[in-house]
């Protein structure tokens, strides 16, 4: 996939000079000791779920917690009247409400087609209770990045055992995916800006609504 022709011959010269200057600058520098990562008091699973809910609501996103059996109804409720719902290939069939008008990314949809979708349903890789963050690693239950970006409503299903307490915990769980070269998207509430007089406006370019559904275990 690479296009070596666009790397200019000057690049080698710049690279060599920069590395030389850097090596001179850091010559003899003492090695740095990194202190241990601080960890908070661990929360129980119930406390984590409670904290996660609190954070999600604080971001003014929607939050529901249901047993697996009621997931289809919960998804249907979140979707409301949305038509043309994107469903990544790996979403288990028993998650979905009957009669849903599904849009599949096989073969890959064009940007224009994606733009006509009104909602997307995805799973996630891991979630963080302390910050209310949902991490996608764009595996089969989440689909490629564009799917969860372009539609205006994102319904994201989180299994309870995917909720970890800390950012550090999530980073550790994501290590395998990153080392396999997968991209990540972290979502903490919906798209927002405070660029005009520091007034918070929700829903700029990303999905304007985020619905989080936790499967109770």
């Amino acid at each position: 996939m690479s296009h070596p022709k666009s790397v200019h011959p000057h690049n080698a010269e710049a690279r060599l000079e920069m590395l030389t200057v850097i090596n001179r600058a850091i010559a003899g520098a003492a090695p740095v000791e990194k202190p241990a990562y601080p960890r908070p008091q661990p929360l129980s699973a119930a406390e984590r779920e409670e904290q996660f809910r609190d954070r999600i609501l604080d971001y003014r996103a929607h939050y529901t917690r249901v047993p697996l059996a009621e997931l289809p109804q919960a998804i249907a409720a979140s979707l409301g009247r949305a038509q043309r719902v994107l469903v990544p290939a790996g979403i288990p069939a028993d998650w979905l409400p009957a009669g849903l008008e599904q849009l599949r990314d096989e073969p890959p949809l064009s940007h224009a087609q994606l733009d006509r979708a009104e909602a997307v349903v995805t799973g996630c890789a891991v979630a963080v209770s302390e910050t209310g963050t949902i991490c996608l690693d764009h595996g089969a239950e989440q689909g490629r990045r564009a799917l969860s970006l372009i539609p205006d409503l994102h319904v994201c299903v989180v299994r309870e055992n995917q909720i970890v307490q800390t950012v550090r915990g999530a980073v550790e769980r994501l290590g395998l995916a990153v080392r396999a070269g997968r991209p990540l998207t972290w979502l903490s509430g919906g798209s927002a800006t405070s660029d005009i007089e520091l007034v918070r406006v929700e829903g700029v370019h990303g999905p304007r609504a985020l619905h989080v559904i936790v499967i109770a275990e």
Binding site: Y59, T133, L184, T185, W186, L187, S188, S191
Partner: peptide
């Protein structure tokens, strides 16, 4: 606590 979007 966390900004809305982080991409990697």
């Amino acid at each position: 606590r966390m900004n809305p979007y982080n991409s990697f």
